[in-house]
Design a protein around this nucleic acid. Structure first.
Length: 321
DNA sequence: TAGGCCATCTGGTCCT
DNA sequence: AGGACCAGATGGCCTA
C-alpha cells in the first residue's frame, strides 16, 4: 500500500542520527569496523587501566578531564560503530522479513503491485485463506464462493474487505464484517443456493463443451452465474466503495487446489506468479475443465483443479510436522 | 490535523 | 562474545 520498495536507494539512505547506509555501504562499514575495533580494544583497555591507577593514587587527578575526554571519544566511537553495525544487521533482517511478507502477498488473494495490503492485513488474509482452503478440503466439495469470501474477509479492515470484493467483482456489502470481526451476510440469497454448483460427475467432464446450449453446459454455469450475480447486485448498490481493478492484480485470486481466477489481460504476470507448476496452473487446452466462452463478460478465468483432494489427515500431517 | 502504516534506531534478552 | 530476535520509541509519509 504505502510501502516504499526496498530497492529504493533514497529510502535506504534515510536513517536517524545521520546514519546513512546502503546495503553495500553496510558491508563496507562492517569490514572496516572490524579492523578498527581490534585496535580500539587495546587502546581503550590501556586507557582504562591507567585512569583507574591515577584515581587510586589521587582522588583529584591532574588532566583527568582531558584524559577522560580522550577515553570517552575512543570508546564512544567504538560504541557508535558497534551500534551502526547492529543497526545495519537489524535493517537487513527487517528487509528479509519484508521480502518474505512480499512473497506472502503474492500468493494470497488480491495481490496488487499498486495497492499493497498492509503487513497486518496480509497476515490476516493469509490466515483466513489457509482457513478457508482447509474448510474446503474438509468439505470435500467445491466451495460456495460467497462463503469462501466471507471466511476470507473475516477480521479484515473495511478497505481490505473492499479490496477482496473488488477482486471478485462482488459487492462488499454482502460480506461486511461486524464489530467483532465476524463476517456477516447481509441478507441476499446466496447464489449457490439458487444456482448449485455442478456435481462431481459434471465437474469431471473434460472440457465442459460436450453438448447442448450454453445453459445446458454445466461447466459454463459459474461464469454466467457470477456475471449475473454481479450485474444483478451491483446495480443495487451505487454507493459501493469497492475498488475497480484495472489489470494490476496478479494473480488476483489464486484458489490453489480449488480454482483460480485471473484477469484476462494479465497473462504474463499471472504465469510469473504461478510458481506451483502445472499441477496448479492450468494451461489452455490442457486439463482445464472450465473454459471461458469468447463472449463471456466475466473478468476471470475459472480453473478448477482436476486432482481429487488429498485426505484431510494427509494434509494435517504435513502441517503439524 | 489525527490516525494508520512504515522504516529505522535502540537497548534488552536469548541463543550459539 | 557476538549475532539474532524482539519490542518500544521516534519521525516521516499519506489519507480521510
Amino acid at each position: 500500500m504505502l510501502t516504499v520498495p526496498f530497492e529504493d536507494p533514497d529510502m535506504m539512505r534515510e536513517s536517524q542520527f545521520g546514519a546513512t547506509f546502503t546495503r553495500q555501504e553496510d558491508a563496507r562499514t562492517l569490514n572496516s569496523a572490524e579492523l578498527k575495533e581490534a585496535e580500539d580494544d587495546n587502546t581503550d583497555r590501556e586507557e582504562e587501566e591507567e585512569e583507574e591507577r591515577e584515581e587510586d593514587e589521587n582522588d583529584h587527578p591532574k588532566k583527568k578531564g582531558a584524559r577522560k575526554k580522550k577515553f570517552s571519544e575512543g570508546r564512544g566511537e567504538r560504541v557508535k560503530v558497534r551500534r551502526q553495525e547492529a543497526n545495519a544487521r537489524e535493517r537487513s533482517r527487517m528487509h528479509g522479513l519484508n521480502d518474505a511478507l512480499e512473497s506472502l502477498r503474492k500468493v494470497v488473494p488480491c495481490y496488487s503491485k499498486t495497492q499493497k495490503l498492509s503487513k497486518i492485513e496480509t497476515l490476516r488474509l493469509a490466515k483466513n485463506y489457509i482457513w478457508a482452503l482447509s474448510e474446503t478440503l474438509s468439505a470435500g466439495k467445491r466451495p460456495d464462493l460467497l462463503a469462501f469470501v466471507q471466511t476470507l474477509c473475516k477480521g479484515l479492515s473495511q478497505p481490505t474487505t473492499n479490496l477482496v470484493a473488488g477482486c471478485l467483482q462482488l459487492n462488499s456489502r454482502n460480506f461486511l464484517t461486524d464489530h467483532n470481526g465476524d463476517v456477516s451476510f447481509s441478507g441476499r440469497p446466496q447464489y449457490d443456493s439458487l444456482y448449485p454448483y455442478p456435481n462431481a460427475a459434471e465437474m469431471a467432464t473434460p472440457t465442459g463443451l460436450s453438448s447442448g446450449t450454453r445453459d445446458s453446459v454445466k461447466p459454463f454455469r459459474p461464469y454466467n452465474y457470477y456475471a449475473s450475480y454481479e450485474s444483478y447486485y451491483d446495480s443495487a448498490s451505487p454507493e459501493s466503495s469497492s475498488p475497480r481493478f484495472e489489470g494490476q492484480m496478479s494473480p488476483p485470486i489464486n484458489y490453489n487446489g480449488i480454482f483460480s481466477l485471473k484477469k484476462h489481460d494479465d497473462q504474463v504476470e499471472y504465469s510469473k506468479n504461478c510458481h506451483y507448476g502445472m499441477r496448479y496452473c492450468n494451461v489452455p487446452g490442457r486439463g482445464s475443465m472450465y473454459r471461458v466462452s469468447p463472449d463471456s463478460h466475466f473478468p476471470y478465468d475459472l480453473h478448477p483443479r482436476s486432482q481429487s483432494f488429498q485426505s484431510q489427515d494427509e494434509l494435517n500431517t504435513g502441517f503439524h510436522n
